[in-house]
Structure formats: structure tokens, C-alpha cells
């Protein structure tokens, strides 16, 4: 039963990571921009949702306000700043977007103060529910898994069935060619960036009732997100989905079972705790190294 519960936890972490990494992998793969500030849009989503939810008492209104806010913020940043960076090298992009992290963290502190915001799960989704075999599981986490799977489906349809999706895929494979075919590249880039930050904002809204809504909340999730897109293959949404689920499962299961495993293997409980905790926090990176040693371009590289 514990294993089932931990697998659910891993799935839930995985779909959260997917929402973050889907946008980032598109931006990275198509626009070739390393956007370290992606976590800031996650934070914007959470802050706007927390504020609107607190004012109106409605989680749905909070969600409805946060998604356009994150998308809009993303498009403004793309228009004002990133456009100037496309032809620069990666170091310049890293510097500029790293600066944006500080800018947004300080901005949220100026607007909302240092005190973390309060955000609650909607009452219908609070508490826990009994699944098969007496397993108690929080309803909200189930809802997060559901939303993540729906978004994955939506993106699948968007990319495989629509003209916009076709252009985005074409852009990931050969940017110069679709430009030569007359596609409005600047507009396409702004849209992609907006879509990416919208998904990050959605992840932020989903995170609000689970995590502390505070300045800098996006920074810790960003590292795992980069791990996901490197494992999945840069530019591939399918890779981001598989990578996110794998990373979520590896991280959760390692945290859940490694300490106990080491207690069985080692005689001294204190060194077992130390080893278990250390290895659990490294597990994702070890996993990444293993994947890359077999498939250096990630599981599903967009460009062969």
C-alpha cells in the first residue's frame, strides 16, 4: 500500500514538473534561449492566484486571473528583453535571465512584502479520500495529477492536430527553413513563450495550496525542471512528459525508500541516516547521468 501511495506521490510531482518543463523545453528547443527566469512565472502564477483567491474567495477566479497574468508577463518579457538576446551567445542569455530572477523576486517583495501568502485548496478538493485498499490520499494531489494529464493531452492534440502545432514542431526541427517558408517567426516566438509561461503559471497555481507562496519559490523547482528537459531531450514535449514522470518517481521513491534500505544494510543508524538522506537528494542527478551516458541527447531529442 505504501508503494502505491509513493508512486502516486511520484506521479503528482512528475506532472507538476511537466507543466514547468513543457514550456521551458519549447523555449530552449525552438528559440535556443536558456531562460533561467522560467521559475519566476511559476511564482507570478502562484502570487496572482493567491491574491485573487483571498480577495474573492474563489479558487477558480484565482486560476482565471493567474493564467493570463503569467502568459502576459511572459510575452512582455519576450518582447522587451529576450528579443535582443536571440543572436547573442548562451552566456549573455544566462546572465540576462539570471538578472530577471532577482528582478522578479525583489518585485514580489516590493508588491506583496516578505510575508509568505496564504492560499488554500478549494473546499471541494481539501482533505483526503479513501482509494482502494484503505489507502488515504489527499484529494488535491489527485486533482493535480488529473490536471497534468489533461494538459499533456491538450498539448499532444495541439502539436499533432493543429497548424500552430505543426509550425512549432517545424521550428524545433529547422528554424531557418520555416522562416524561409514565410512563417512570422517573431510572432511565433512570442506565442510560444507566452504558452510556456502560461503553463509555468498553471504549475504555480497548482503549487499554491501545497507549497509556501513566497518570493524565490520558483528557484528550487527550476533546477529539477532543467534536469527534466535534459533527460527528456531538449525541445521535445513528449520527452518532457516522460522525463518529468521519471524524475518525479525517482525523486519520490528514493526519498521514500533509500533511508530504510540503508538502515538494513548498515550497522550504525546515524551513518545510515546520513548516507540515505545524502543519496536520496542526489538520486535525480545520478539518474540524469545514467540516462545521458546511454543517450547523450536525452530520451527524445527534437533534432537528430
Amino acid at each position: 500500500m505504501l508503494v502505491v501511495e509513493q508512486i502516486l506521490n511520484g506521479l503528482q510531482l512528475g506532472v507538476m514538473l511537466f507543466l514547468m518543463s513543457a514550456g521551458l523545453t519549447l523555449v530552449f528547443g525552438i528559440m535556443r534561449v536558456i531562460n533561467l527566469a522560467h521559475g519566476s512565472f511559476y511564482m507570478i502564477g502562484a502570487y496572482v492566484a493567491a491574491t485573487v483567491t483571498a480577495r474573492t474567495g474563489s479558487f477558480l477566479l484565482g486560476l482565471a486571473a493567474a493564467l493570463p497574468a503569467a502568459a502576459l508577463a511572459g510575452m512582455v518579457v519576450e518582447f522587451l528583453i529576450l528579443r535582443r538576446l536571440y543572436h547573442r551567445d548562451h552566456l549573455d542569455q544566462v546572465l540576462a535571465t539570471f538578472g530577471l530572477i532577482f528582478f522578479f523576486n525583489e518585485l514580489t517583495r516590493m508588491i506583496w512584502g516578505r510575508r509568505p501568502l496564504f492560499m488554500e485548496a478549494p473546499s471541494r478538493l481539501s482533505g483526503s479520500v479513501e482509494l482502494v485498499g484503505g489507502l488515504q490520499y489527499p484529494v488535491y494531489r489527485l486533482a493535480v495529477i488529473l490536471v497534468g494529464i489533461l494538459v499533456a493531452l491538450f498539448l499532444y492534440l495541439l502539436f499533432s492536430r493543429t497548424r500552430l502545432g505543426m509550425r512549432i514542431r517545424a521550428g524545433a526541427t529547422n528554424r531557418e527553413m520555416i522562416g524561409a517558408l514565410g512563417v512570422n517567426i517573431p510572432l511565433l516566438y512570442t506565442l510560444i513563450f507566452g504558452l510556456g509561461t502560461l503553463l509555468a503559471g498553471l504549475a504555480g497555481v497548482m503549487a499554491g495550496p501545497l507549497f509556501a507562496v513566497e518570493a524565490g519559490m520558483g528557484d528550487s523547482v527550476l533546477i529539477l525542471t532543467f534536469v527534466v528537459i535534459v533527460i527528456g531531450g531538449i525541445g521535445s514535449v513528449r520527452g518532457a512528459f516522460i522525463g518529468a514522470i521519471l524524475v518525479g518517481l525517482v525523486d519520490t521513491l528514493a526519498r521514500a525508500f533509500l533511508p530504510a534500505l540503508f538502515r538494513h544494510l548498515l550497522a550504525s543508524p546515524s551513518s545510515a541516516d546520513r548516507m540515505g538522506a545524502a543519496l536520496a537528494s542526489m538520486s535525480v542527478y545520478i539518474f540524469m547521468a545514467l540516462v545521458l551516458s546511454v543517450k547523450p541527447a536525452g530520451l527524445f531529442p527534437a533534432r537528430e
Partner: peptide, 21 residues
Amino acid sequence: GELYTTLGQADYAAEIAALRS
């Protein structure tokens, strides 16, 4: 039971499940 988590960890689902059991 005794669990040591990563500093700055955000998600505690795995720890809470272990705690419950």
C-alpha cells in the same frame, strides 16, 4: 522513525507517507 530531508525541500509527500505507515 527518523527522516532527514534536503535543506529547502518543497515536497514532503514521500516523508508524510512514510510517517503515516
